[in-house]
């Protein structure tokens, strides 16, 4: 299967080099695309200097818009699957082959999940993940152990849907919607690194807003949506 690793990057000058160097040195068999989401720091400069495979958005679109750009690229260039991959070094490429194997069993989406075999710890951060899991369980009847994991792999059908439609954000509510619509979602146990440099995007008020958005979306909105294939 022809895989494209899509790496949305917004102000990741401290991390991007380390992340891409590892991919380039040890995982040459996979193609990757950095989508620079209008970064205001030296992210783009670093990538161009090192001749990385990069696409620059002229303005900041946010994760959804940046990721969709990657999906459009993958769709136009005939890739069979896409891996959503963080630019901050949280995601480890050593799990990609396991996710690909799972994908070949016929799944539409494979999540690199922290909680297949391991238990969620009872921290405040995990409360959000727990609530979202519960909401998905309630509305779809399926168990997704780690809906907030940002390491997700999508097959060709999903690439087409994500590339061409509105309201396909790379977020848990879209996963819930697709599960409800009959998509097969598998999970593979992975380990994630703590963020090494830079600041996390989610502070307290943003987390609250995010939770509100995702929960209302899963519990209410997704029940009324229609799928455009």
């Amino acid at each position: 299967m022809k895989l494209l690793i899509v790496i949305p990057a917004y102000n990741e000058e401290e991390n991007i080099e380390r992340v891409v160097e590892e991919l380039q040195s040890k995982y040459r068999q996979y193609d990757y695309l950095i989508v620079n989401d209008g970064s205001r720091d030296r992210t783009s400069e670093i990538c161009h200097r090192n001749h990385y495979h990069i696409l620059d958005l002229p303005i900041n679109l946010g994760l959804t818009g940046a990721f969709q750009t990657g999906m459009k690229y993958a769709y136009e260039n005939g890739y069979d699957c896409v891996l959503q991959f963080d630019a901050d070094g949280q995601h480890l490429p050593k799990y990609i082959s396991m996710m690909l194997e799972k994908m070949e069993e016929g799944y539409d989406i494979v999540i690199g999940s922290r909680f297949v075999d391991e238990k969620k710890n009872k921290s405040f951060r995990m409360l959000g993940s727990f609530l979202i899991s519960k909401a998905i369980r309630m509305t779809t009847g399926r168990k997704i152990a780690d809906p907030t994991s940002g390491m997700r792999m999508f097959n060709r059908d999903m690439i087409r849907e994500f590339a061409n439609n509105i309201n396909y954000e790379p977020e848990p509510d879209t996963i819930s919607f697709l599960v409800k619509q009959g998509a097969e979602v598998g999970e593979v146990q992975v380990h994630m690194e703590e963020r090494i440099a830079g600041e996390s995007y989610l502070n307290f008020s943003r987390s609250m807003k995010y939770m509100m958005r995702v929960l209302v979306s899963i519990l209410v909105v997704q029940n009324f949506r229609k799928r455009n294939r």
Binding site: R213, V221, F224
Partner: peptide, 10 residues
């Protein structure tokens, strides 16, 4: 409007 793909959920 969301069903008609004319409005973003957010």
């Amino acid at each position: 409007k969301i069903r008609q793909s004319k409005l973003q959920i957010g």
